[in-house]
């Protein structure tokens, strides 16, 4: 063995502290050219927009500024409504640290036009979810919206 096995129990592991200063930097992101407009529509008008590529016949949701397939600039924005269907889902029972959640949460991939939005599902029991089920976005009241994906509180069955 090239590696000396000095610690046999994880709990014995120690690290050498390189100093008391915490890692001094964080990331802050921009929503981008498409994202700026996409989230403005959600925030101000409660609408979900896609962008359509005429030659590839694809409507991207969330809207983008270019078609990844043919690289044309996408100028046509389409109001795709606030309803979609469940493309896939998962039920989360444990927290990130591995403890049981108080109640399981349902995460859905909602197909809207040719895109997917990942979000929570509410108003539906774990036993009743089905792939292909129609769902609708439930927005926060306008005054509470901040221009982000959390402006949609959750999706709920139609």
């Amino acid at each position: 063995m090239a590696i000396l096995e000095r610690i046999t129990r994880n709990i014995d592991n120690r690290f050498w502290d390189p100093g008391s200063e915490a890692f001094p930097v964080k990331n802050r992101y921009t929503a981008g050219m498409a994202g700026q407009r996409f989230f403005k529509e959600i925030k101000e008008n409660g609408k979900i927009f896609g962008s359509k590529c005429q030659s590839c016949k694809i409507t991207y949701v969330p809207a983008r500024i270019y078609c990844e397939r043919c690289f044309e600039r996408l100028e046509e924005w389409v109001d795709v409504g606030t309803e979609g269907t469940i493309y896939s889902f998962t039920v989360v029972y444990k927290t990130k640290s591995g403890k049981p959640k108080e109640s399981p949460s349902i995460i859905v991939a909602v197909k809207i036009a040719d895109g997917l939005l990942i979000h929570r599902l509410n108003g539906c029991s774990v036993e009743d979810i089905q792939i292909g089920m129609p769902v609708k976005a439930e927005f926060k009241p306008k005054a509470e919206r901040r221009g982000g994906i959390e402006d949609i509180k959750y999706f709920k069955p139609l």
């Binding site: 992101y29 921009t30 981008g32 050219m33 994202g35 270019y66 690289f71 600039r73």
Partner: peptide, 19 residues
């Protein structure tokens, strides 16, 4: 110094111009 574009969008603008 600070672009509104996302990294993908920046890459697209340069790539599209080159093409």
């Amino acid at each position: 110094r600070r672009a509104l574009e996302t990294p993908k969008e920046l890459a697209y603008e340069a790539t599209k111009t080159a093409l």
